[in-house]
Simulated scan of single mutants.
Amino acid sequence: MQGSFRTIELSDVEFESQGLRFLTVKTPNLKGRGDICLYVPQVDENISNLPIYILLHGVYGSAWIWALKGGAHKTAKRMMDAKTIKPAIIAMPSDGLWGDGSAYFSHHQKNFDNWIVNDVITAIKENIPQAKNSTSICIGGLSMGGYGALSLGARFPEKFKAISAHSALTKLEQMQLFVEEPIKEYNKEAKFPNVFDIILKNKFTLPPLRFDCGKKDILIKHNRELNIKLIENGINHTYEEFNGKHEWPYWIKYLKRTLLFFDIHSLYNL
Rank of each mutant, 00 (worst) to 15 (best):
E9H: 11
E45M: 12
F262H: 15
L219K: 09
Y239D: 03
L152A: 09
S136T: 14
R257A: 08
A149R: 02
L10Y: 05
K110G: 01
L23V: 10
L270Q: 10
F242Q: 10
K77C: 07
F105E: 07
E180R: 14
G71S: 12
N46E: 14
I163Y: 08
C213F: 11
S151Q: 10
I139Y: 12
K229T: 06
D44E: 14
N236D: 10
L169N: 04
G61S: 12
G234A: 06
D212C: 02
I252G: 08
L219M: 04
H107N: 00
A88G: 05
Q42A: 10
N223R: 01
D197K: 15
H246E: 01
L172W: 06
I183L: 15
G58E: 11
M80I: 15
M175F: 15
P51D: 03
G99D: 13
T24Q: 14
K191Y: 12
K74L: 15
N111K: 10
S102K: 09
K253H: 13
P41L: 08
V120P: 03
P51L: 10
K215W: 05
I8L: 11
F160A: 06
P207T: 12
E126W: 07
D217C: 09
G3I: 12
V43C: 00
Y60I: 13
H265E: 11
T84Y: 01
E247M: 06
P193S: 04
Y254K: 01
I139E: 01
A149M: 00
F262C: 08
E225F: 04
N187H: 14
R6G: 00
W248Q: 06
A103R: 03
H265L: 09
Q176E: 15
I198T: 03
F204M: 13
N133H: 10
L23D: 07
W98C: 05
E14I: 09
L172R: 03
K132G: 00
S48M: 04
S164D: 13
T7M: 05
G153H: 02
K201D: 13
D197S: 15
K216M: 11
L267Q: 14
N46F: 13
V40M: 07
S94M: 00
F211Q: 07
G145I: 12
E180T: 15
W98F: 13
L10R: 11
H73V: 09
H222I: 03
W66F: 10
K171E: 15
E16I: 00
H246G: 01
R78G: 03
W98R: 12
I52C: 06
L56I: 13
G214S: 02
C37V: 06
I199A: 04
I47C: 00
H166C: 08
I90C: 04
I231M: 12
L177R: 11
K31T: 02
P157M: 07
T84L: 01
N194V: 06
D12S: 14
L255Y: 05
T84W: 02
K125H: 03
E240P: 00
I220S: 04
I198S: 03
G71H: 14
V179C: 03
P41D: 04
E181G: 07
Q42T: 14
W98S: 13
L200I: 07
N133G: 09
G146I: 11
K161S: 14
I54Q: 05
Y250V: 09
A76I: 08
N202T: 11
N29R: 14
N118L: 10
E126K: 05
D113L: 01
E181L: 05
Y53P: 02
E9G: 05
L255N: 00
L206K: 00
G146V: 07
G145C: 06
G214I: 01
F211W: 04
